[in-house]
């Protein structure tokens, strides 16, 4: 085969589609994306086929819920890309683009989950993925306050919240709700949101609530229910060399608003940031109240 020289521009073009140069000459890592980390078992098998055919019989699982396949030789890339399309494996992003959306297991299986993240991740992939940005843009969704997908460390994070309400006619006065509440609120340095009155009836004080649903989970007679769910929105989180938590800009945002908020946040990032600057860094020079209005 004739030896080809690949220009920087060609290599850059490859990067847009999740082909990353390895330190070894002529070898590349294929980065794929798995929206929300949900993958059909049949597709998973196809990863194995690709790793055996083009790589060195192993994969690397990234922290963004993607699977990477190293040791792809440059001459095999066109054939590989064609195979990926036929097999239904989605290519990931690198360079100045938005990344794979990550999510926790969510309410379909997790006992703590307040929202179904699987469905949401599938819907949002189109809105989130592969958009041109100054550096990179990461979005995460977490189904409860446990924050397993770390929304506060992403450029844009959605954290599910659940507001509880109690049906006193069902209450048997066991005090467990107040007990779990005191523990959570204590850790969060707040007075408990649930206290028992002199008749052993729970009294709910919303202003102290963290909206994480422990009272609902523990109630033996289902007197506590989740009245409404929504999302806290965090912007500007990052890790890397100079880590910083995202800033919370909203509570109880409706699920239907999420695509719009993502679009607005990406356009805001493009407006305020210089090339190579992360969203959080650019936000440091901005008035957050103005930014809030732009995004929400």
């Amino acid at each position: 085969m004739q030896k080809k020289n690949h220009t920087d521009a060609e290599l850059q073009e490859l990067r847009t589609g999740g082909i990353i140069k390895q330190k070894q000459k002529d070898y590349f890592i294929l980065r794929t994306r798995i929206p929300g980390g949900y993958l059909k078992a049949d597709i998973l098998k196809k990863y194995s086929v690709i790793a055996k055919k083009y790589g060195r019989d192993y994969v690397h699982i990234s922290t963004r819920q993607g699977i990477e396949i190293p040791w792809i030789h440059i001459n095999n890339i066109p054939k590989l890309l064609n195979d990926l399309k036929n097999l239904g494996i989605l290519r990931g992003a690198c360079g100045p683009r938005s990344r794979n959306l990550i999510a926790c297991p969510g309410a379909s299986v997790c006992r703590f989950g307040l929202v179904n993240t699987e469905e949401l991740a599938r819907k949002l992939d189109r809105v989130v993925f592969g958009k041109e940005v100054p550096k990179k843009f990461k979005v995460a969704i977490s189904g409860c306050l446990n924050s397993c997908s770390k929304p506060q460390e992403n450029d844009l994070g959605f954290l599910a919240q659940g507001e509880p309400e109690v049906d006193l006619s069902k209450c048997i006065g066991c005090t467990l709700c107040a007990k779990v509440c005191e523990k959570v609120c204590g850790r969060g340095k707040r007075e408990p949101a649930i206290i028992m009155d002199e008749n052993k009836r729970p009294v709910y004080r919303k202003e102290n609530c963290f909206f994480e649903g422990d009272c609902v989970r523990v109630c033996p007679v289902n007197a506590w229910k989740v009245k409404k769910t929504g999302f806290a929105v965090y912007i500007g989180g990052r890790v890397g060399r100079f880590p910083k938590f995202g800033i919370k800009i909203a509570n109880f945002v409706d699920e239907k608003q999420i695509p719009r908020i993502i679009k607005n946040a990406i356009s805001c990032y493009n407006r305020i940031a210089q090339t190579q600057e992360r969203f959080g860094e650019a936000l440091e020079k901005q008035d957050i109240e103005t930014i809030k209005k732009e995004i929400l």
Binding site: R111, L176, K179, V180, D214, R217, V218, P220, V221, N222
Partner: peptide, 14 residues
């Protein structure tokens, strides 16, 4: 608290 939540999830009545 854990046993309570789990027994409930298994569908038993408390």
């Amino acid at each position: 608290t854990n046993v309570m939540a789990s027994v409930k999830e298994e569908g038993h009545q408390i």
